[in-house]
């Protein structure tokens, strides 16, 4: 039985801000289903007593002194923008 169908893939793609073409969504659905079926093997491992590891080093709350440091000039960043207006990044109109 399929773990994931095309409609779910399209929903997730929308959440991830991808506009898939029809054929692409169908192909991805079958590939993702195959991968998710493979991943199901983890369900057989008992983990009720196991703590999750999101990070392998025992580092926490790393801070540094709050001092002024040299930083990249705004112009060096703004000139990378696909579209800009003066000191702003320009995006399509959101409010009519």
């Amino acid at each position: 039985m399929a773990v994931v169908n095309q409609q779910e893939v399209e929903q997730v793609a929308f959440l991830a801000r991808l506009a898939l073409a029809e054929a692409e969504a169908a192909k991805l659905a079958s590939q993702l289903d195959q991968i998710l079926q493979y991943v199901q093997q983890l369900q057989a491992i008992p983990t009720d007593e196991v703590k999750p590891t999101s990070h392998v080093l025992a580092l926490s709350n790393i801070t540094r002194p709050d001092q002024r440091q040299p930083c990249v000039p705004p112009e060096d960043v703004l000139r990378l923008a696909p579209e800009r207006h003066n000191q702003f990044f320009k995006v399509p109109k959101i409010i009519e």
């Binding site: 801000r17 991808l18 991805l28």
Partner: peptide, 23 residues
């Protein structure tokens, strides 16, 4: 615009992993 940008800018494997990861 986000959707078109990401649809056109990413290749197939990148999209596969983004969707799997989001899922």
């Amino acid at each position: 615009m986000y959707q078109r940008t990401r649809q056109e800018g990413f290749g197939e494997e990148a999209k596969r992993r983004i969707i799997l990861g989001t899922y």
